[in-house]
Design a protein around this nucleic acid. Structure first.
Lengths: 216, 216
DNA sequence: GTAAGATGTGACCCTGCGGTCATGTGACCA
DNA sequence: TGGTCACATGACCGCAGGGTCACATCTTAC
């Protein structure tokens, strides 16, 4: 947690520091990010920085917290009653909010990506300890319920596909932001529909049910 | 490329240096890897290191080249006649060889993972310039041919699924090495079959063809 | 034996890092 | 006016990084 001194700062100064820091972490990863650069670009003295934050990690964890708060705002209202919707609808909403967040906050998305990439680093565990334990579990529960309701084949490996579905979210985001568009627009919805159709029916030809999900 | 001096070295010394370096890059990522540590662990003087290699990048690219050569040996003989097999068989073989390589060369796999994670870093482009242009193209061609032969639905987005299939390989490897086993054994084949079945039929319930792919 | 060339060596250079601290400054209150 | 307290400052510290270089030591050939 930042020190009181930081929160006593005028808001524009605080925002400036955060913006500069986000930019820095998006460009350089935790280890290579430089406090010297951050203070230079923020126009504050290095000593001041350490009046605001304990250390580099303190700043980073604070930014991650800001990101998490911001991310919650993207969640669909459908998620408030997960039992009332089928799993594919829920996954669609989750993916949508994640892509929208990534598209509208590319620097946060970049930081997450860099973090995910450095799974060995000490900072990774520090961050994940705060936020991640629930993600895979959530998809596992989702799958189990969906199987019970007959929406999903009962013979799948739940753990494996909880992992796959959680991770494929990142893949779809990467594909979308890299090859389709940098912004959240109607093509995003098309991309998600394509993926959901695949998730449901696969890419194999001999499947009478396929193409149902795609209405493009 | 390493200098002549390096190749004039006795083989055991060369191997030792490579082993130490691989270990270092597997643990620390390109930027954080330390030449000081490498020379210390190899028992050579720092000056000697720069008689062998131009710089850190020179060493790293050389190791990547070694990895690529080693990886080729894992490729299935089926890949010599890709036209004679259906796309799911080919994907199975590609995934198998990738997992086997990762399982038997965990440190190389770790280096790749770290590299993939730092897509912004200069070293990433340097490596990918050598090796990557063909990967997505390969899967695109594979998909187009498969569609022409009626193995794959004609309505899919080829570019998107070339990307997904290439990337999901990494996901399956990660899942396998993290949750199933550290070695290449029969469970690996089961994991791949589960994935192929998913790729072909999806996870949706209303699919008369599903479960065909799984014979466990 | 000795000259020449290839190899080996580690002290050393510069740079940038995260982090500290003595000192300065200005607002507020008595 | 003087004291106090929150905040600002940048020179400075120790350290580790990549990379260099003058010199020592081996190998080979005549």
């Amino acid at each position: 947690m930042p020190k009181d001194t930081f929160f006593n700062l005028p808001e524009d100064k605080r925002t400036l520091i955060c913006d500069v820091a986000i930019h820095e972490f998006a460009e350089y990863s935790f280890d290579r990010a430089s406090i010297n650069r951050i203070v230079a670009k923020s126009g504050i003295a290095k000593g001041s920085f350490y009046q605001y934050f304990e250390d580099k990690q303190d700043l980073f964890l604070y930014l991650m917290q800001l990101a998490a708060e911001k991310k919650v705002n993207y969640l669909s209202p459908l998620m408030h009653n997960p039992d009332q919707h089928d799993i594919f609808t829920l996954i669609r909403e989750i993916y949508k909010s994640a892509i929208q967040f990534a598209a509208e906050n590319p620097e946060y998305a970049e930081i997450s990506k860099k973090l995910l990439a450095n799974k060995g680093a000490p900072i990774y565990r520090e961050v994940m300890a705060d936020s991640f334990p629930s993600a895979y579990m959530f998809f596992e529960t989702l799958l189990e319920n969906a199987i019970a309701r007959g929406e999903v084949r009962a013979d799948i490996d739940v753990k494996m596909f909880a992992y796959m579905i959680a991770s494929m979210n990142t893949l779809v985001i990467e594909y979308y932001t890299k090859y389709v568009a940098q912004h959240y627009d109607k093509k995003m919805l098309e991309t998600i529909e394509k993926f959901l159709d695949f998730l449901k029916y696969g890419i194999g030809e001999n499947n009478s049910e396929s193409q149902k999900g795609v209405k493009l």
